[in-house]
Design a protein around this nucleic acid. Structure first.
Lengths: 236, 236
DNA sequence: CAGCCGATTTCACCTGTTTTTCATCGCCCC
DNA sequence: GGGGCGATGAAAAACAGGTGAAATCGGCTG
């Protein structure tokens, strides 16, 4: 449900507002003001973006040009163009460049959100993720984790970041996930590089589960990362 | 995977942060604050740098000037310019001087890392190294060494420096590698010249392999260096 | 608008691991 | 036997990651 979004727009104020609104929806948003920088981020392996919102007019590399590059590089993510122009010709040019949708400024934030939702649903790659592993089932809708134990089903409500973290673990069961990957997928880039948010959040999630009588689903593999294993099932 | 990097920047604080972050990624980083000193290091044979990160404004020799010199000296390594300026004209000047990429301050550390990775991949000389020699296969991704023995495949997780060392040996099998070469490629210059880090680390690597039942892959050729030979295969 | 509350991040401290240093040892050669 | 090298084990230093408490943030309520 939450998306990893790249926002490329050089209008400070608007960009800030958009970023805030999207973050409030639970998305993780990186922002940059320059077309070339945007291209680097989009094509780099730093984060796998699931949506890009790109202004038409940009320093470095124009919006449509950025879309074209993305498409010719084989990136399949949804692209949403923002623009001050309203003409049909522009719209056509934008869509030709590979954009999936087109929003003319000024726009209501609600409309942006609606289009983001629409794009998310429309994408062929889109699938409501099946977040069910062994006895664990996470419903992103309600943000609740359900676990079947011998004593019945336990339902645990999770906080925002806990949800994202849990979802990520459930999407990659049994895999050793480096902390750096969690950080790049679940937190935005303007992070103090020496902070231990990831460790802290993992601890909170562990504690949350522990409080409800579940032990140690998430193990630490020293200097390698974390692993979510559905095998280990402790019940109180 | 790990790079030998030269960082030329006179802003103490920023440079320190950048160096730390890069080192944490496993790179070997030398830092100097002066353009001329940077040029000496880059053109000298003390170390073969695989990437240089250069500030625009420097005492001694400006960033673009340093790039120009490097290019006209035939150095092919990727050059990344850092600058406080954001204008397109500057960008053009930087790229004209021979830089491969351009990052305006302030930047997120993660973005720097992304660009470093991008440059690393983009270089024509870049090849995902095939670290497989005889029965030994090292995967830099997971940092694990896999060895096929008569008793099956043994998987050995290696610590940071052990990985770098192993990778170096696997990249130069059968060759006699002088200790001094290992030191200059795998350790930065601010080393106590009378330390025996190399010998110590070689010993740790040997021991790690021994613990897992493998004997003496790395032989010492007295007063010449070390040789990794895939021939010798001991199994417990 | 103040104060509260839960969520999140930061901080200082702690722990176990990795890396470096140090002192010493053994080997080969003269 | 002594000098040059590299090996060795122990100890020290540096480091990554875990932890609880405290600070911060943002929304919500009275």
């Amino acid at each position: 449900m939450p998306l990893r979004i790249l926002l490329v727009d050089d209008e400070r104020e608007l960009a800030g507002a958009v970023q805030t609104v999207l973050q409030r929806q639970g998305h993780v948003v990186d922002h940059c003001a320059d077309g070339l920088a945007g291209w680097t981020l989009l094509s780099g392996e730093l984060a796998r973006y699931e949506l890009a919102i790109v202004d038409w007019m940009l320093p470095g590399l124009s919006g449509p040009e950025l879309c074209r590059r993305a498409r010719s590089a084989g990136l399949a993510l949804p692209l949403l163009l923002l623009t001050a122009r309203a003409g049909t010709a522009d719209r056509v040019e934008g869509l030709d460049a590979g954009a999936d949708d087109y929003l003319s400024k000024p726009f209501a934030m609600e409309e942006l959100l609606a289009r983001v939702r629409a794009l998310q649903r429309r994408q062929p790659s889109y699938r409501e993720p099946e977040l069910e592993v062994g006895p664990y089932r996470f419903d992103p809708q309600s943000g609740q984790l359900q676990v079947s134990t011998s004593a019945g089903v336990v339902t645990i409500p999770l906080a925002g970041k806990e949800q994202q973290l849990m979802a990520y673990f459930l999407a990659h069961p049994e895999r050793i996930i480096p902390g750096s990957e969690l950080r790049s997928q679940l937190w935005d880039l303007h992070q103090d590089p020496v902070s231990n948010v990831v460790a802290a959040q993992v601890r909170l999630l562990r504690r949350r589960l522990a409080v409800h009588g579940l032990a140690c689903l998430i193990e630490t593999v020293p200097s390698r990362g974390y692993r979510f294993s559905s095998m280990v099932l402790g019940a109180s």
